[in-house]
Nucleic acid binder design. Structure first.
Length: 415
RNA sequence: GCGGGCGUAGCUCAGUCGGUUAGAGCGCGAGAUUGUGGCUCUCGAGGUCGCCGGUUCGAUCCCGGUCGCUCGCCCCA
């Protein structure tokens, strides 16, 4: 036997049951987003590598080791998108959308990161994404977080999630804090873990998040971010918290919450869960006021978040099939000929019809049952001649003879 | 990229202290029931025991490698 093809490591097929769960997450998100005034859009699945390299920071893990990059036949450096934000910001610039601010959008689709797969982590995975570009007010931060909160609520996951909140301050505050931190940790250089020593040069804020025992002791006495805040940063964060309080959205201020990507400022947040092993983040995002400018656009504030569809779907669990079908079971030559026409008529009327075209009557009924049909419509040659069908309720086994139109009316009435 | 665990039927898993025909449940197919599904009973199909190599008279079992999955680290949705 020839060796059988396998999916590429870290990729997965979405069989109908999986797909239904995914579609449910996307569907709920889309509707909630629409109610908040976010319009759906999409950008290409790949971009010029520069788009991600410039926005996410050369030193971030995503850019330095996780990108699916290749050179196309025209010699262009291309990368499969590892996240949505950069692409949407690029689209904002390319399409001159600065005329339309604030641009509030919802998007979803596959993302690609070359990582070691784990539970809730794949190389091709899917995200829902919300962005509000051109809004600098804390009210927008509150709204963005509220969208995520509502989505989790409608998915029935709000009890499994915690909102972690922090502020990284404005660029001035953040830069100041970075220096303070570097100074502090440099003083404890000899006691830092190897990983954190690495972070010191690359992304010192990350050390705050370290899981290493020794690091944690040093971190415990580290200067706090908010001590570096200027008045503007302080006021902004207070406004965001007030807004969340007003909406009754519970959160936990976590001073150690820092984002991996360089472009974040001010509000940073994560809806986390303890139900997915090492992968806690369900939805994560924050404000990125300098990003558009970094990409070559005009100075434009922005804020957004991304949510992992696989993770959300895993937690949300099974989703029932929306509509149970009706099985049309022809018996005999003439009925077989007539059945497709009858089925089409029912389908045009809006019913979901499973046409049983194989096997003996018993087998056809068995298939009807397995397809989850609520009713079976049996048509024999004699019934056909009489202009009748037998409508059988598969739940209680009751059945009656009536015209196809009458059966249709009855099924429609039941919904 | 680093470390641990695991790969036996479509699925969930037994099993062989290394020995001839590798099992169960579920699912699938046929029949009991030639115009009636679910329940029951009978029968059946389906496996190079992940792959390659080594040790051995003999390997699904032991060893090495490899691929895949999984858990954790890094990082992230």
């Amino acid at each position: 036997m020839v060796s059988q093809p396998q999916p590429v490591r870290g990729t997965h097929d979405l069989l109908p049951d999986d797909f239904r769960r995914h579609a449910h997450v996307v569907g709920v998100s889309r509707h909630v987003a629409a109610r908040f005034g976010y319009a759906e859009m999409a950008t290409p699945i790949f971009e010029v590598t520069e788009v991600f390299a410039r926005t996410m920071g050369e030193t971030s893990d995503v850019v330095s080791k996780e990108m699916y990059s290749f050179t196309d036949k025209g010699g262009e450096a291309i990368t499969l998108r590892p996240e949505y934000t950069a692409g949407i910001c690029r689209a904002f610039i390319s399409n001159g959308l600065m005329q339309n601010v604030p641009v509030k959008v919802f998007a979803h689709g596959p993302m690609f990161r070359y990582e070691r797969p784990q539970k809730g982590r794949q190389r091709q995975f899917h995200q829902i994404d919300i962005e509000a570009i051109g809004a600098a007010e804390p009210a927008c931060d509150v709204e963005i977080i509220a969208v995520g909160h509502e989505i989790l609520r409608e998915l029935g996951l709000i009890d499994k999630a915690t909102l972690e909140l922090n502020s990284l301050g404005d660029p001035e505050s953040r830069a100041h804090y970075r220096q303070v931190l570097v100074d502090y940790f440099t003083g404890h250089k000899d006691k830092l873990s190897k990983d954190s020593l690495e972070r010191l040069g690359r992304n010192p804020l990350r050390i705050l998040d370290s899981k290493d025992e020794g690091d944690r002791k040093i971190v415990a006495n580290a200067p706090l971010l908010e001590e570096s805040f200027n008045q503007a940063a302080r006021d902004f964060f207070a406004d965001v918290r007030r807004g969340l309080d007003a909406l009754g959205i519970a959160y936990h201020v976590n001073p150690r919450l820092v984002r991996g990507l360089d472009y974040y400022t001010h509000t940073a947040f994560e809806f986390t869960t303890t139900h997915l092993g090492a992968q806690g983040a369900l939805i994560a995002g924050g404000r990125y006021d300098g990003l558009i400018e970094q990409l070559g656009g005009p100075p434009t504030p922005g804020i957004g978040w991304a949510g992992g569809i696989e993770r959300l779907a895993m937690l949300a669990g099974d989703v029932a099939v929306a509509v149970r079908p009706v099985a049309l079971v022809p018996i005999g030559e003439a009925a077989e000929q007539a059945a497709p026409v009858m089925a089409l008529k029912l389908r045009r009327a809006g019913l979901v019809v499973e046409l049983a075209y194989k096997g003996k009557v018993g087998q056809r009924m068995k298939r009807a049952d397995r397809a989850g049909a609520s009713h079976a419509i049996l048509v024999g040659d004699d019934e056909l001649k009489a202009g009748e069908v037998t409508l059988r309720d598969l739940k209680d086994g009751s059945q009656e003879k009536l015209s196809l139109d009458a059966a249709l009316a009855k099924l429609k009435a039941r919904g």
